[in-house]
Amino acid sequence: MWIIAKLTCREILSKRIFHITLFMSFAFLLFYAVATYFAAREVGEDFTNRPVSADFALVQSFFATQILGVGLYFASFVTALLAILSSVGSIAGEIESHQIDTMLARPIHRRSVIFGKFAGLGSLLVIYAAFLFLGVLLINQWIGGELLRVEFTVVQAAKALAIFVMQPLLLIAVALLFSSMMTTVNGGIVLIILYGIGFIGGFVEQLGVLMEKPTLSNIGIISSLVFPLDSLFRKMTVYLFDSAGDPLSFAAQGLFGSLSTPSGAMLMYAALYGCAALWLAVRRFSSRDL
């Protein structure tokens, strides 16, 4: 298993898509730093002569959390995209090119192939996700200034980071399942659609809770059960922004807040969802006639 994990890491590191993504990630962090700097300067000039009040604090919190939230949201999107593109063809692509025949000709159990690819892809994507997450947070803390700096503790940041890196692991597990069942293109399309359903459902759920519309809330809950990726992102913002169920805090955070806080049971469901997808991938690949 560990040999396959090592080979998977080498394969991903040698691919051009990884090099391009890494380069563009540095470009994104640079752009985010520049945008944060000028946003802090402009906001500081607007609020310099304004008296401190409850409205001022709400507006200041809105600007701060929006700047940090959009950075984390885009970091989550890029991480998810890299996870999908790097893993959805990890089995199907090798079957189509018959590269898997050489590997399976050796005394290797097929479950070792799945677990090895999950370990290799997961380790790389966890490091990459942590790099983006910490990069966005450090930029916010160092360049955001007094007005755009979001206050959080080390414990909050650690909890948020732990949830953030769960996202690519969930995607890799589901991608390996689809890769063992269908072609690379079909698996990628299905997974991207599930990704979109999850995040759109998350926004619908927040609007439903805010407007007290049970139908919208239920749609969001169902989408979270179908694909619980958005629940992980919302839970991450709750840990980082300390916004559990507070309408004023949600108003300050805008689109990136979470008025409907995912429970610990939902986190457990997301973990079981990924484990079930990985188990089904093993079962499907083990019974597949190559």
Results as ranks from 00 to 15, higher is better:
I127V: 15
L176F: 09
F164Q: 00
G116A: 08
A158L: 15
S112H: 13
R149C: 14
A175C: 13
Q156F: 11
W142F: 15
S179Y: 03
A173W: 04
V150A: 06
V154D: 11
L148H: 04
S180M: 05
R111T: 12
V174W: 06
F115E: 09
L134M: 12
K159R: 12
F115S: 11
A119E: 02
G122H: 01
V174K: 00
F133T: 05
T153A: 10
S123T: 15
L169T: 07
A130Q: 00
F164M: 06
V165P: 03
E146Q: 12
L171F: 12
V155P: 11
I143S: 04
Q156M: 12
F131M: 08
K159S: 12
E146L: 11
L125K: 02
V165E: 03
S123I: 15
F178V: 13
V155L: 15
A129M: 02
L169D: 01
E151C: 12
E146C: 10
P168L: 08
I108R: 00
V174N: 00
L148P: 08
V113K: 00
F152E: 03
I163W: 03
K117M: 09
I127R: 03
L137H: 02
L134E: 06
S179T: 08
I108Y: 04
A157N: 05
A160L: 07
K117I: 10
F118N: 03
V126P: 03
Q156N: 13
A157V: 12
L148K: 00
I143K: 00
A160G: 11
I108E: 00
L161M: 11
K117Q: 06
M181H: 10
L147P: 07
F164S: 05
M181Q: 10
Q167I: 15
A175G: 08
L171S: 04
A129R: 00
L138C: 12
A158K: 02
V150L: 05
F133D: 02
A160H: 02
A129Y: 01
S179K: 01
S180D: 03
F115L: 15
S179A: 08
G120W: 01
W142H: 14
F164L: 09
R149W: 12
A130P: 05
I114W: 01
I108G: 00
L125Q: 08
V150T: 09
